[in-house]
């Protein structure tokens, strides 16, 4: 196992632990399980993450430590990668979101 793969797998495990111990950022695990050989997709996600971190900075910048911005951006990238993986699962128009609202 290469050092990079080992590090990724380590991050995977930690994120899974965090998620299953009630939630947080299992995200890297998920992100790493997505095929990442499509450079266009990667570039698009990185660009989108940059855009979203700008939005976060504009909204909450005064509350964010600058050193934490790269960490937040990397979680955003993971979230986008996860969303991409979810999007790859074909849904029908009739598949409704599982929400709770009763009129």
């Amino acid at each position: 196992m290469s050092k990079e793969t080992a590090n990724k797998s380590r991050r995977n495990f930690t994120k899974r632990l965090a998620l299953v111990a009630s939630a947080p950022i299992l995200t890297t695990y998920c992100a790493n399980s997505i095929p990442t050989d499509n450079q266009n997709v990667e570039k698009t996600l990185a660009k989108s993450a940059k855009g979203l971190i700008d939005v976060i900075q504009a909204s909450y910048g005064q509350n964010i430590n600058k050193d934490d911005l790269p960490k937040i951006q990397s979680v955003i990238e993971r979230n986008l990668t996860m969303a991409e993986k979810i999007r790859q699962f074909k849904l029908k128009n009739s598949d409704e979101p599982a929400t709770i609202f009763y009129a």
């Binding site: 939005v55 909450y60 979230n79 999007r87 849904l91 598949d95 979101p97 599982a98």
Partner: peptide, 18 residues
């Protein structure tokens, strides 16, 4: 902070998959 930047369409897509 990162959760505030999840797109609504991505969140709803996740709910639809359930």
């Amino acid at each position: 902070f990162s959760g505030t930047a999840i797109l609504a369409v991505d969140y709803i897509q996740a709910l639809r998959l359930r």
